[in-house]
């Protein structure tokens, strides 16, 4: 296990180097001049030249990359072009909000998705299955921003039960904080829950057809034990993969939900960075995501061993 972990962590290095080059090249290839965005549309050529030099953009790309990479190695993410704030500080301001939203959404996603998927599998081709299928089709086709606005209008504007947006920190006011979290988390979780439900259903149906399930039933085990201890546990392995990847996606890809609910998360930070060509912010955020994503995959792989005892990390599968 220890050797496996070290090996996987070492694999991080080439992945991060490759990712950093890709991020840098792609970002710098996008049309748009950060100096122009900063200085404004009425800036003179002299002003633009001075701003470019100040930002280091007058250097060749390889030099710019190496300077940035050297700073990243020292965990110095640089300074935002537009706000002049340290990027590390900007990211650390956003991470708690992002984690809070993503974890809540994943929790909701798991509860809704697995319950619905399980129900659909156990009642295959009967009305619960059809209801779940309809649910999945509907929520997967509903745009996040539309659902978010709809929820705000109904629960905040009409009923006044929930705040329409803005994050309240749990430590400052827990009573209001959870209320401010409900709608964005639900909006973000809904689409993901449909995915989880469909994967759970498919996986459960496959597992339920396995010999060992038949054997368990033949042994006279109660159906609940067969389902929860034997079928569901094995069926969850692909679902874990999905949930893990979706969690990674939610960390940076929840920009629509964050915009609608004015949630100060990483998604908005990245979108703002792209929009203003704030290379340092986008590069710093993305490289961090790559690292987190790779680590998440590692965690997922480790979790397989918990759900399926036949799996041995770094060695052969137990027979």
């Amino acid at each position: 296990m220890g050797a496996y972990l070290i090996k996987r962590l070492l694999q991080l290095i080439p992945v991060l180097i490759l990712a950093s080059i890709l991020i840098f090249v792609i970002l710098h290839s996008i049309p748009g001049d950060p100096a122009l965005v900063y200085a404004g549309p009425d800036a003179t050529p002299e002003t633009l030249a001075a701003v470019r030099a100040d930002m280091g953009l007058d250097q060749p790309w390889p030099v710019q990359y190496l300077v940035w990479a050297e700073h990243i190695v020292r965990l110095d993410f640089g300074q935002s072009y537009t706000s002049k704030y340290p990027v590390g500080e900007l990211i650390s301001q956003r991470v708690p909000a992002t984690l809070e939203l993503a974890l809540s959404a994943v929790l909701l996603e798991i509860v809704i998705g697995i319950s619905f998927g399980l129900m659909a599998a156990l009642y295959q081709r009967r009305w619960p299955d059809f209801v779940v299928s309809a649910y999945c089709a509907i929520v997967m086709s509903v745009p996040n921003f539309w659902l978010g606005i709809l929820l705000i209008i109904f629960f905040a504007l009409q009923l006044g039960w929930l705040p329409p947006g803005n994050r309240v920190e749990f430590l400052s006011n827990p009573g209001v904080a959870w209320k401010s979290l409900i709608m964005p988390a639900f909006t973000l979780a809904l689409f993901a829950s449909a995915t989880v439900a469909r994967f759970t259903r498919a996986s459960m149906l496959e597992v339920l057809g396995e010999d060992y399930i038949r054997t368990a039933r033949a042994k006279g085990l109660r159906e609940r034990v067969v389902i929860t201890s034997h079928a569901l546990r094995n069926a969850l392995i692909p679902v874990i993969t999905i949930v893990g990847i979706q969690f990674g996606y939610m960390l940076g890809g929840a920009v629509v939900v964050e915009s609608v609910f004015t949630w100060p998360g990483m998604g908005r930070l990245i979108m703002q960075g792209i929009s203003s060509r704030d290379y340092t912010v986008v590069q710093g955020s993305l490289i961090l995501f790559v690292a987190v994503f790779v680590l998440l995959n590692l965690i997922i792989d480790i979790s397989y061993a918990f759900f399926d005892p036949r799996i041995r990390l770094g060695g052969k599968k137990a027979s």
Binding site: F191, A202, E206, T241, I245, Y249, V255, V256
Partner: peptide, 29 residues
């Protein structure tokens, strides 16, 4: 169609499609 074993690759493909659509939606805001 979803009954086959879900691999990480297939999951990633699926999420790339769905995530890509989401990103497009985000960018078109």
């Amino acid at each position: 169609p979803l009954s086959k074993r879900v691999t990480r690759r297939s999951a990633l493909q699926f999420l790339a499609l769905t995530g890509g659509a989401g990103l497009l939606a985000a960018c078109s805001q």
